[in-house]
Nucleic acid binder design. Structure first.
Lengths: 137, 137
DNA sequence: AACTAATTAGTAATAACTCCTAAATAAGAG
DNA sequence: CTCTTATTTAGGAGTTATTACTAATTAGTT
């Protein structure tokens, strides 16, 4: 994936995955795909409200769900909260249970896929390490 | 941890962790700790209703939360659903997104703790691999 | 430019979980 | 063994994240 996305590139990406390039959807993609980042649906909705004051949470949920079905983003949960991640490569996370900070983290040998599961088709995996960050102890 | 737990052992375990050994709580511990297993709060509640027809979901939620605070069980989330795990050792899981099957799984080198995080105090970590199980494809 | 299926915003509904309170009870003190 | 008290319980109310539904709008094709 390139670091920079033009409007036409995002538009094409959406169309290639069977989605129409509406302004709302373009904005969601820019917010998520341009930066390799984590977002909750609610965080995204609040950010988008600045440019689209009437955008509904529903639209955000729906778009995120479609992007995930297309494999363009991943979803996982931390403390019961859905997190969408534009970094689709298998990687680990580290989570501070005090301040809720969530970061990508490198782990040695972390991308080994499971043993004893030849017959499964594994699509992806993520790990969350929980603890307390430097600032919180 | 031993494989078998007597009533007195569970009772002592609870008291050692500042919890009273009520019949409801004993039953929850037996259900979770006796078998190394995964349970959702709702699954547990339904199981306990057979012996305690009036037990409230609230009691189950509260007890699970206390057991987790004591480190006797772990909580993580799959597809937005809380899962309590009586296997507190760091290990991985494999999840079928079709039939919702969730299994423990061995992964090579999977328990390496994260690099570059000297200042964090890591308490535990779990990984979930997502895909489709043999029966579902 | 017109057409049509996809998309949107808004509202209602659901599910999981938490908060609150009065009654019941486990466990220590006497 | 009984008394006492802080913990625990059940039940109901409240909250939050998410999904379902619907009518109006719109992107992208013809």
């Amino acid at each position: 994936m390139s670091e920079e996305w033009s409007d036409t590139e995002i538009s094409t990406l959406l169309n290639d995955n069977g989605m129409r390039a509406t302004p709302q959807r373009m904005a969601i993609c820019k917010e998520l795909l341009l930066k390799k980042c984590h977002r909750t649906p609610n965080e995204l909705h609040e950010e988008l409200c600045q440019r689209f004051p009437t955008i509904s949470p529903n639209t955000v949920y729906l778009t995120l769900s479609q992007l995930e079905s297309s494999g363009l983003i991943r979803r996982f949960y931390v403390d019961g909260q859905a997190i969408y991640d534009s970094n689709t490569a298998t990687h680990d996370h580290i989570y501070c249970r005090v301040c809720k900070l969530l970061l990508d983290v490198g782990t040695e040998n972390s991308i080994h896929t499971p043993k004893c599961t030849e017959e499964w088709s594994i699509e992806w995996g993520t790990r969350v390490w929980s603890g307390v960050c430097p600032k919180c102890h």
